[in-house]
């Protein structure tokens, strides 16, 4: 590697430092329908998480140097993947196999099914199990989240070389980190987990679009805009 280990680990140290504090859910009280209340609470949380995610993305080393068009493309394509890394990480080892959307919003299978999110529950539990089996470190989680955004296969790309450099920097940071732990296969294994994350995020996007289109669940403007970009 062209750069000393310390400069690479700076990327991961920076990602750890700028990782946002998990948000709390604001319980919706606009309806007596329990399932709808859960959905509205979840969608409100998701919308606020999106706002935080956009602020977080700006702090990933190299992201703000991309053109505005490419920043938008990456976020429009990879936002759900980046958010789901957090959900799957928080949901590890939960009794009752609950999904931890927030400390005060934990949903089990029955609650998800009642809210019309059975498919999302199944997909997210599968992702959570995968991460749990891999025994991820916090360093790996923050890097995976940034890579999910960088690796979003956005199209069209305004400046492919800059996006490629952005991806390479994160990849090299991960490689350096794993080699410093003498884990020569870990970086590859993490990269090979990205397709499952993409698949899970696609199912999540479909689930929320269906809620909006078929059950007319109202969504905040930013969330709707990002779902529509899919």
């Amino acid at each position: 590697y062209a750069h000393p280990v310390s400069s690479r680990n700076k990327v991961i140290s920076h990602l750890l430092l700028t990782e946002p504090t998990p948000l709390a859910a604001n319980q919706d009280d606009s309806t007596n329908d329990g399932s709808l209340r859960t959905l509205l609470t979840l969608c409100d949380l998701l919308n606020r998480e999106l706002l935080v995610l956009i602020g977080w993305a700006k702090q990933i080393p190299g992201f703000s140097g991309l053109s505005l068009v490419d920043q938008m493309s990456l976020l429009q394509s990879g936002w759900m993947e980046a958010l789901l890394v957090g959900v799957a990480w928080r949901s590890q080892g939960m009794p009752g196999e609950e999904l931890v959307f927030a400390g005060n919003l934990r949903l089990d299978e029955a609650q998800c099914r009642a809210a019309g999110l059975a498919d999302l529950y199944e997909a997210l539990r599968h992702l959570t199990s995968k991460y749990q089996a891999m025994n991820l470190t916090p360093e790996e989680v923050v890097t995976l989240k940034a890579m999910a955004l960088a690796n979003s296969d956005a199209d069209p790309v305004d400046c492919p070389d800059s996006v490629q450099r952005f991806q390479d920097e994160l990849h090299e940071a991960l490689q350096e980190y794993e080699l410093s732990r003498r884990e020569q296969h870990r970086a590859g294994r993490l990269l090979m987990s990205l397709p499952l994350l993409r698949q899970t995020a696609d199912r999540a996007v479909q689930a929320f679009l269906q809620l909006h289109r078929h059950r007319c669940v109202p969504l905040h403007k930013l969330l709707l805009e990002m779902l529509d970009a899919k």
């Binding site: 935080v52 602020g55 700006k58």
Partner: peptide
């Protein structure tokens, strides 16, 4: 850009984290 105006505005605002 017109279709994605909230994201566009949030990214343009500043390089600091987005205020809630």
């Amino acid at each position: 850009k017109e279709k994605h105006k909230i994201l566009h505005r949030l990214l343009q605002n500043s390089t600091s984290p987005v205020e809630l």
